[in-house]
């Protein structure tokens, strides 16, 4: 049977962290090349390599206007500009899955997504799975099944599970293994991770998102 939740499982702030706004610079402070919507005749405007570009990102339901360099990944912007440090840098080459977020509800690697490419899409991070002060059902399931040891890969694992369950609410064990195959756990908590995804699927039947 599941153990009782620890106190600190209910203390996470909802949505954007306290550092969230530090990264949201006032718009218009820097005259930057912008990503226009040119017509047939106007050539597309190029975002300069070193001057930051103005971009609007929709993250966990909040609209952030900020200045980014073209080379900044979504992971970098989430962590270093928006203070959403739940998404973890691991390999930073699309192999480990620690940076997994949902883009338009689908799991993707934030380390291989340019922030500029995320414009116009809905980004959900591990922070966005909170329900007020409560953990969401997928997060709860990972805690209840002890589906981690060091916990570093866990936000990415949970986001991969969340994306899998949104697409496939009642996956088989084989489908869970395949759906979670883009996320490595060096502690080897895989059996518990599979159990957690099954538990999350059950929990979500009862009104889970």
């Amino acid at each position: 049977m599941a153990r009782k939740p620890r106190d600190n499982e209910h203390t996470c702030p909802h949505g954007v962290s306290r550092r969230g706004f530090l990264g949201s610079l006032g718009a218009g402070a820097v005259a930057a090349a912008t990503l226009g919507r040119p017509g047939e005749t106007a050539p597309p405007e190029v975002a300069d390599a070193v001057e930051p570009s103005k971009v609007t990102l929709l993250v966990n339901g909040r609209r952030h206007r900020l200045l980014v360099e073209p080379r900044w990944t979504l992971l970098h912007v989430l962590r270093e500009r928006l203070g959403l440090t739940g998404s973890k840098p691991g390999c930073e080459r699309g192999e480990c899955g620690a940076c997994t977020v949902l883009i338009d509800g689908v799991p993707r690697y934030a380390c291989l997504t340019l922030a500029l490419e995320a414009e116009g899409h809905e980004v959900t991070t591990i922070e966005g799975l909170m329900r007020g002060e409560e953990l969401g059902p997928t997060q709860q399931a990972f805690a209840a099944e002890d589906a981690f040891q060091c916990g570093y890969c866990t936000p990415g694992q949970i986001m991969a599970a969340e994306g899998l369950l949104r697409a496939k609410p009642a996956p088989t064990v084989a489908e869970i293994r395949l759906g979670m195959s883009g996320n490595l756990c060096r502690c080897g908590a895989y059996p518990h991770i599979v159990k957690a995804v099954r538990r999350a699927a059950e929990a979500r039947k009862g009104g889970g998102r």
């Binding site: 990503l35 919507r37 040119p38 597309p44 190029v46 975002a47 390599a49 570009s53 073209p70």
Partner: peptide
Amino acid sequence: LPSFAYVRPT
């Protein structure tokens, strides 16, 4: 990443 410019033609 190394620095680069970015353009998104329509």
